[in-house]
C-alpha cells in the first residue's frame, strides 16, 4: 500500500515539477517571433532549392517577413505560392516570369561519337575532369544524368546514356541544373518560348559533322528561312532571338540536321466562309498547304499545314483561324 502511495506521490510530483518548470520557462524565456515567418514558410514549397538566393525556405521566409526580400522571391513556387505569400504579407505583387530549363543537345551516346569509353563515377562533372569527358564533341551532353540527380523537383527524366529530358509540367525554373552542368548546356527560357536550337557547338561545320549527326554546322539555312529575321548564325551556331520569334516552326522543318526543336503543334489553320478568294494566303503559305481558285473559298490541307500562322496575319478579311487539329481534319473529311 505504501509503495503505491509513494509511487503516485513521487512520479506525480516529478510530473508536476517538470510541468511547472516548463510553464515557467515558456513564460520567462519566451522569444518574440514574427508570426508571419511561420505563415510564409507554410506557403513556400519546402524543397530548399536555393533559387531565390537564400540557403533554405526557412531563411527565405524570414527574409520575406522582415521585408528584406520581395513577396515574389520564390522562383520555384510560381504564381500560387506568390499569391499565398502576398496574402500573408498584405501586399500586392505580380508573379515573376515563369521560366523553364532546356537542355540544348540531342547527341545521345550512340548518335554522337565518343572519344573514349568512360567507366567511372556516375557523374558528368567527374567525367568532365577526365579529358573533358567521353564525348568527342567538346560541347555535347555527357549523358550521365547529373542534372537529373540535382533537380529538387524530379522534373528531369534520365535514362542511361541518353540526353536527359526536362518535363515542363514539373520544371519550376529554379536553375539548380544550370549550375551543375559542366558543359553549360542548360539555359533558362521563358515558359512561352517554343522553338530552340538543340546544339551549343561553336565548332566549324566539318568538325561538327565528324563527331555528331545532329549538331549545328552553321549552314545558315534557318537564317534564310526565317521570315521574321529571328535566327542569326553567330560564331558557328544558330541563335534564336526569342523576342522576334513567332514560333512559326519553319526553321524546325528547314534544318537539314534536325537540330532545331519546336514544340509540336496541336492546331491547324482553317479558312472560314468569310473568304472572298483573294489568293493572298495561297501566296504567303511557305509549305503550299493552301489551294483554291481566285474568288472562290480556299482550302487548307491539314496534313501539309504546319500551323505557322503566317496566313492568319496576312488575310485581309480575317477569315483564317487556328483550330484544333482533330476538328480541322474532321471538317476536311
Amino acid at each position: 500500500m505504501i509503495t503505491i502511495f509513494l509511487s503516485i506521490t513521487v512520479v506525480g510530483g516529478l510530473g508536476l515539477l517538470a510541468g511547472g518548470l516548463l510553464a515557467f520557462a515558456s513564460k520567462k524565456f519566451a522569444v518574440e517571433v514574427d508570426p508571419r515567418v511561420a505563415q510564409v514558410q507554410a506557403a513556400l514549397s519546402g524543397v530548399n532549392c536555393g533559387a531565390c538566393g537564400h540557403p533554405s525556405c526557412a531563411a527565405a521566409a524570414q527574409a520575406i517577413a522582415e521585408g528584406k526580400a520581395p513577396v515574389n522571391a520564390c522562383v520555384a513556387g510560381g504564381e500560387t505560392t506568390m499569391r499565398m505569400v502576398a496574402k500573408v504579407m498584405g501586399a500586392e505583387a505580380s508573379a515573376a516570369v515563369q521560366r523553364i530549363a532546356k537542355i540544348q543537345c540531342r547527341g545521345d551516346i550512340g548518335i554522337a561519337k565518343l572519344q573514349y569509353e568512360y567507366h567511372g563515377i556516375d557523374d558528368c562533372r567527374a567525367a568532365y575532369i577526365l579529358f573533358n569527358g567521353g564525348k568527342a564533341c567538346a560541347y555535347g551532353c555527357l549523358a550521365l544524368g547529373t542534372c537529373a540527380k540535382a533537380c529538387p523537383f524530379g522534373a528531369i527524366e534520365y535514362t542511361f546514356h541518353r540526353v536527359p529530358h526536362v518535363r515542363y509540367d514539373k520544371c519550376t525554373g529554379c536553375g539548380v541544373c544550370v549550375d551543375v552542368c559542366p558543359r553549360s548546356l542548360i539555359d533558362l527560357y521563358e515558359a512561352t518560348d517554343e522553338v530552340f536550337v538543340m546544339c551549343k557547338s561553336h565548332d566549324k561545320g566539318a568538325q561538327v559533322k565528324k563527331v555528331c549527326d545532329v549538331g549545328c554546322v552553321a549552314c545558315g539555312i534557318c537564317e534564310r528561312t526565317c521570315p521574321f529575321e529571328a535566327i542569326t548564325v553567330q560564331d558557328g551556331l544558330a541563335v534564336i532571338d526569342h523576342t522576334k520569334c513567332t514560333k512559326c516552326g519553319l526553321c524546325v522543318i528547314a534544318c537539314p540536321y534536325n537540330c532545331i526543336w519546336g514544340k509540336p503543334k496541336e492546331t491547324r489553320a482553317f479558312i472560314t466562309d468569310k473568304c472572298n478568294g483573294c489568293t493572298i494566303c495561297e501566296k504567303v503559305c511557305p509549305v503550299n498547304a493552301i489551294t483554291g481558285e481566285a474568288k472562290h473559298l480556299h482550302v487548307v490541307d491539314p496534313d501539309r499545314c504546319i500551323a505557322c500562322g503566317i496566313c492568319v496575319g496576312k488575310c485581309p478579311r480575317e477569315a483564317i483561324e487556328m483550330r484544333e487539329r482533330k476538328a480541322s481534319l474532321a471538317e476536311a473529311a
Binding site: L6, S7, T9, V11, L21, K28, F29
Partner: peptide, 29 residues
C-alpha cells in the same frame, strides 16, 4: 522511496522535460 522499478518511466519524463527546458533556455540566451 524504494520505488526503483519506476526508473524507466521517471527517466523518460525527466529527460523529456529537461530537453524542452534546455531548448527554451538556449533559444533565449
Amino acid at each position: 522511496s524504494g520505488i526503483e522499478f519506476l526508473q524507466t518511466l521517471s527517466f523518460i519524463l525527466v529527460i523529456a522535460a529537461l530537453v524542452q527546458f534546455v531548448e527554451m533556455f538556449l533559444q533565449k540566451f
